[in-house]
Design a protein around this nucleic acid. Structure first.
Lengths: 344, 344
DNA sequence: TTGAAAGCGCTAACAT
DNA sequence: ATGTTAGCGCTTTCAA
């Protein structure tokens, strides 16, 4: 196990000082071409590699950013992390990953770790069980830039990259109407969460834009689960005037609808159109394939890093300015709502 | 933005030296309880936080491990990373994440970055396009412990955590036979990859253990894709003596089989039993739900970290000993191969 | 253009 | 039990 070669070693062999060698290695303007050349050559020959700990300690910059996600096991976040890391590495940044497991306590530990390691910035998606946000707010005093993605908290006034859930609800509903469905229902999510309220409001707005007065009996208060979709179907089929299409708040809810429809021998999309939200990977593999709203996860990661980079670059701002990046939700049409194609 | 408080600051205020303060903070044995108490109190009060860069530089230990995966967007790896990070964080280790994008070049960059940052160890899953492994082998000289997971390379003699693919193929086939299927076919994967050869061999061994002579016409040379499953079905249905069950090398291949079977009005599992491999998240959501072999991804991550930890702890070994951890594949029975239940 | 010297913040050997 | 001192490897100011 060979001892690591340091700037010191290079300097001694070349009868130079460490300062000069450092300048040569870092392409300093005032250094002769000849010494630069010899230094680089010897460095190459001896397999010299800089010690980033040392330079980080000296410079006060690590080129590492901390990323907090609820769980790497959740597709959505894996995908966002993919986006973050891809862009970050092209800028010479590395990712320190921490999972919150949806717990406030882990989140605090993550931030403590990150500040101890002196990361240059932090990207985070807030844990579901976080109620006290002081650990996030404290980052401002410490001068560590922070950007939220996917899950944010408006009142904190911290930059975030989000999907436009209102618009998502709008285009999902609009799509069903354009397909010719007349009575479009909605299975909503827990209303204390803003994203679900937004989707509901998007639904309502799309109806109104089409000159349709929302029918309260067509809005089922559900949640994100297969069971919720099944329950909703139980309710809807019991109506004297049932819907002919459903916009479900999330793909798993939509999946429940599909399962229930099959049991009840209701044909999709002929008798009932259905669209979900999230564009889960199973959507295209079930039958009928499920239409959905894509949340641009990879792009979200890239935008989040890009925004963080901006904040890290110009410290004057240091996060005081509230900048939000809102991503467009994308309509992904598949069999479950494709009236024309399915007749062929 | 408050300046960071250092050990120096604590020492001055308490009229102690930095050495003593450091000892107090680190719970050194020879330190009086009283000074320890006052130091800790002031640290608390001033919100002192250690600079891990400085201590890492001094100690030559970062408590960071590097993790190389092909892509965080692939479910499988997200899940493994979840396992790694979960266990690592309980041991005070943090994860530096790098994606290889299946490229040898990125892999090399990852290792360069990791050594520059002075990670204490590395966990990696080899990129598909890696042919030269010297960057991995060089880690040995550098004294950086390395453990492979999921994708390894036997000849390198580097510790690895793997799933027993032979056994996976065996129990998948055995399961179909126990369900009463008589002619069990196999759709194989690319045979230059060891994992796929192993699954095929497991299939053959299970047949022989049941006293069945393998029938070459029941082995279709396929690959991991939906199309491959469809092609296989085209082939199998054309046989004069077609199979009544299929073990597909991977879930996507099995999915192709199911889609083709539906088109051909072949009932699953009554007329044709089917089992895949990987336990993809869509398995339980398609219909019929797909039986599969679970690869224990989260456990794989934990085992990988546990093994790395062992190597990091006792440097004498430093990876010279070849230790492999082989995980048991788990049978996951669902509708697609459940003869009894499906008759109910 | 290069050298000299100091210091980023911490820890550990050695001394008392 | 505490103080002293040196040094991890690097960068940068100041001086020549």
């Amino acid at each position: 196990m060979s001892r690591k070669v340091t700037i010191q070693d290079l300097a001694e062999q070349l009868k130079l000082t460490t300062g000069t060698v450092s300048r040569a290695l870092n392409n300093h303007p005032r250094i002769s071409d000849s010494t630069k050349k010899t230094v680089l050559e010897l460095a190459e020959k001896l397999n010299y590699r800089p010690n980033r700990l040392a330079s980080s300690l000296r410079l006060g910059k690590t080129n590492i950013i901390g990323v907090i996600i609820p769980s790497a096991e959740i597709n959505f976040f894996g995908s966002v992390v993919h986006g973050i890391e891809s862009l970050a590495s092209t800028y010479g940044y590395n990712i320190l990953l921490y999972q919150s497991n949806e717990s406030e306590q882990y989140e605090q530990k993550a931030i403590e770790t990150f500040t101890d390691v002196r990361v240059d910035g932090i990207l985070a998606s807030i844990a579901k069980n976080t109620h006290d946000f002081s650990h996030y707010l404290n980052l401002r005093n410490k001068g560590i830039p922070l950007v939220f993605f996917d899950r944010s908290q408006d009142m904190l006034n911290i930059p975030a990259v989000l999907v436009d859930d209102f618009k998502g609800g709008y285009i999902a509903t609009e799509h069903l109407l354009k397909q010719g469905y007349k009575r479009v229902a909605h299975i909503s999510g827990q209303q204390h969460l803003k994203i679900f309220r937004d989707r509901l409001n998007g639904y309502l707005a799309a109806l109104q834009a089409a000159g349709i007065t929302p029918d309260e009996t067509l809005i089922y208060s559900g949640s994100v689960s297969i069971q919720s979709g099944k329950d909703a179907m139980e309710y809807f089929t019991g109506l004297t005037n049932p819907p002919d299409a459903i916009f479900a708040v999330e793909d798993f809810t939509a999946l429940g609808v599909i399962k229930a429809a099959k049991e009840k021998n209701i044909r999709i999309p002929e008798q009932l159109g259905i669209i979900g939200f999230a564009n889960e990977s199973f959507d295209e593999h079930i039958s009928p394939a499920l239409s959905s709203i894509d949340q641009q996860t990879v792009q979200m990661g890239k935008e989040a890093f890009a925004l963080l980079l901006k904040l890290m670059d110009d410290k004057k701002n240091d996060g005081l300015k509230k900048i939000n990046v809102i991503l467009e939700p994308l309509l992904q049409v598949r069999q479950s709502s494709m009236v024309l194609k399915s007749q062929g």
